[in-house]
């Protein structure tokens, strides 16, 4: 049965969460590292050629209140279709068109029967490196945590 666009856009929450996770991971990846892990691009048709643009980043007043415009960031987007018919999308940080194409290809392949192989060769290493990078920053921050101690005062004795 053919999927209607509505069904395609509302997959079950588990697979949606998984797709959001890999799309975010690919968007945050260093372009060079992604290219190392996934050097050969399969044949594909561009639905939206890679395009560099800006996204207005918003914050919230007081961290919790009304939105305000903080400033823009550079983003490159791309959409494509593989020979198998799988469609991939990417919005990646920065101005690297190759990064956006690669991320879109991986997004498309992750929706095919190649997903498990790709997860092992591309997503798992990217994820591990990101976790290690974050853990390293957090460990350095933890070392600068102030341990207060109170001096014994005369009147306490």
């Amino acid at each position: 049965m053919m999927q209607t666009p509505l069904e395609a856009a509302t997959p079950n929450s588990e697979s949606l969460a998984a797709r959001k996770a890999w799309m975010g991971l690919l968007a945050r990846a260093k372009p060079g590292r992604l290219a190392d892990l996934f050097p050969e691009l399969p044949a594909h048709d561009l639905l939206r050629a890679p395009e560099i643009g800006a996204v207005m980043v918003r914050g919230r007043i007081g961290g919790t209140g009304q939105p305000f415009n903080l400033g823009e960031m550079t983003v490159t987007r791309c959409a494509l279709r593989l020979g198998s018919g799988a469609v991939g999308h990417a919005h990646v940080q920065g101005r690297d068109k190759g990064h956006a194409v690669r991320a879109a290809v991986v997004d498309a392949l992750m929706q095919t029967n190649q997903a498990e192989a790709l997860r092992a060769t591309v997503l798992v290493p990217l994820q591990a490196e990101e976790v290690a990078r974050r853990a390293n920053r957090a460990a350095k921050a933890a070392a600068t945590k102030v341990e207060f101690f109170t001096l014994v005062r005369g009147e306490d004795q």
Partner: peptide, 22 residues
């Protein structure tokens, strides 16, 4: 930045979830 097309606006960032270094 004036040469860049505006691709959209982000969801407001959640600073409560910040990975703090300070």
């Amino acid at each position: 930045r004036t040469t860049l097309p505006r691709l959209g606006a982000s969801c407001p960032v959640n600073t409560a979830e910040m990975a703090v270094i300070r």
